[in-house]
């Protein structure tokens, strides 16, 4: 019965640092206004009251790469624009993400010509690709939500436990031992397939 007991339970939430960081980052993605072609019109439309990108916390389009952390490459990237795009990406502070919006920026779109970059992922790392020519605002929002999911799963300070990798043979051996443990009389059926309920295991050959 200490003095502090039950004093803070209505004011304190226990969580991990990662959760807080990722929550803050994904909830206020500031996109850079980087409209290159007709996709930009849909990007602009997604900021209007009808679609309202502010619902996802990314309505603050910044005219400067130094204040933004999301680059929506909206439109055809020409070879002349490519070095400019790369420079702007490099000027954005970490952490930063890229959405490739539309067919043109993803794979060059219909413009398989001498002047068009065939996919913006040749010069900057892309997190989410959006299909469409141009994509509707709903499509952009889906990409934004996918990006938020991705940010949510990013480890920052806390290392996530690595996935347990099991050798196939190890797994078989484990199953086998479990099966043997469940068999009423293992000595009676050593050579035949071990069967217990749903799982059937073939005995090891050789």
């Amino acid at each position: 019965m200490s003095f502090l007991e039950n004093r803070f339970e209505q004011n304190i939430v226990t969580t991990t640092v990662d959760s807080v960081f990722n929550w803050a980052r994904k909830s206020s993605l500031w996109p850079m206004s980087f409209g290159l072609a007709c996709c930009a019109i849909e990007m602009i439309a997604s900021t209007t009251a009808r679609f309202d990108i502010a619902r996802f916390g990314s309505e603050v389009f910044r005219p400067s790469p130094r204040q933004s952390d999301l680059m929506i490459v909206a439109g055809t990237v020409t070879l002349k624009m490519a070095p400019v795009l790369k420079r702007l990406y490099d000027q954005m502070p970490e952490p930063k993400w890229v959405i490739s919006m539309g067919a043109c920026s993803s794979v060059g779109g219909p413009f398989n010509t001498y002047a068009t970059l065939q996919g913006v992922d040749k010069i900057v790392p892309v997190d989410v690709y959006v299909t469409g020519c141009p994509p509707r605002p709903e499509n952009l929002f889906y990409a934004l939500m996918k990006l938020q999911d991705k940010i949510d799963a990013t480890p920052n300070l806390v290392k996530r436990p690595t996935e347990v990798h099991l050798e196939e043979a190890m797994l078989e051996e484990f199953k086998r031992s479990v099966m043997i443990a469940q068999t009423q009389n293992p000595a009676a059926e050593p050579s035949g397939p071990i069967s217990s309920g749903l799982v059937t295991l073939e005995p090891r050959r050789g």
């Binding site: 060059g108 398989n112 010509t113 001498y114 002047a115 068009t116 065939q118």
Partner: peptide, 23 residues
């Protein structure tokens, strides 16, 4: 005027390849 500096060739010549370097 239009193409990037260091570009080789003149794109509107009839013998310039129409397609780029796509796979």
């Amino acid at each position: 005027l239009l193409m990037p500096e260091g570009w080789v060739g003149h794109p509107l010549r009839k013998d310039f390849p129409i397609h780029g370097h796509k796979y």
